[in-house]
Amino acid sequence: MKNVVIKNLNYSYNENTPVLKNINLEINQGEYVSIVGQNGCGKSTLCKLIIGLLEKDSGEIIVNGLSLNKDSIQEIRKKVAIVFQNPDNQFIGATVEDDIAFSLENNNIPREKMITLVKEYATKVGMEDFLTKEPSYLSGGQKQRVAIADALVRNPEILILDEATSMLDPAGKQEILSLVNKMKLENPNLTIISITHDIEEAYLGDRIVLLNEGEIVLTCRPDELFKNSELINQYNLSVPFIVQLQKKCQELGYQINDEDTLEKIGEMICQSK
C-alpha cells in the first residue's frame, strides 16, 4: 500500500526562488526512507508540506489515500507524526507526562485512557522514571526521546524525523537511532521518513532520496548510492564508515560481501593473519 504519494509538487517562498520543483515521490507502507541533500535543498520544506504546515503552490499530496487540503488536514495530522530538530522548541508541556499527554488532549482521548497511554509510551522510550521532571532537568537526547513518545502515542502511520538528531551529542544521537530502530521492529508497518544531514543515519534506511536544489536527483538503495563514486563526487557526499571499510578491505584482498556487517568484517580480519 502506498502511504505517501506526491505528484508534481511545486513550492516557492517567493516567486523568483522556487524551493521544490516538480517533486514526484511514492512511499510504501512500512518503508524507511531517508531524504538527504545539502543545506537549503528543500528537505525540511518537503516534510512541512506533507503535514500541511506550509501550503503547496501546485501538485498533489496524498497521505493514506486522503488528498491534502483544508478539510482533510486534521485527519491527516492524526496519521502523520513529526519530530523536529530542536529538542527545546517542541517540548510543550510543563513536565514529561504533560508533554506526552498534550498530543492526546488534542485528540480528545478520555482521561483514564490517557493515563495508561502516557505511562506505556514513556516506558517504551525509557523515560518512565522522569515523568514528573521538567524539561530543564533533561538532556537533549532525553527531550528527543520524549518527542518520539509524543509522536508515537497517537499511533501514527507515518513518522517523520526532521533532522531529529542533528542537535544532539553523539551519545544522544545513538540513543535516538537505536530507539527508532526498536520502534520499527515493534511496529513494522510504521513508515519512517528521515530527513538528515548525517550520512551514517541515511544509510540505515531502506531507500535514499537525494534532493539537490529542489529536485529529486536520485532514489535508490543506500548501498547502491555509496558504491557509485561518480555520484558521490558529483553531489559532494561523504561515504558511511561501513562502506569505506568494506571498500578498503576489498582492496586489501579480503573476501567481503556488501551485506557484511561491522561485526562480521571485524571477525574476518581477526581470523585471517
Partner: peptide, 18 residues
C-alpha cells in the same frame, strides 16, 4: 509548528490530563 503538527486546535473539543 510543533503544536500544530501534534494536532493542537484551541477551538476543538479537548480532553484534559490534569
Amino acid at each position: 509548528n510543533a503544536m500544530e503538527a501534534r494536532g493542537y486546535n484551541p477551538y476543538a473539543k479537548r480532553s484534559r490530563y490534569r
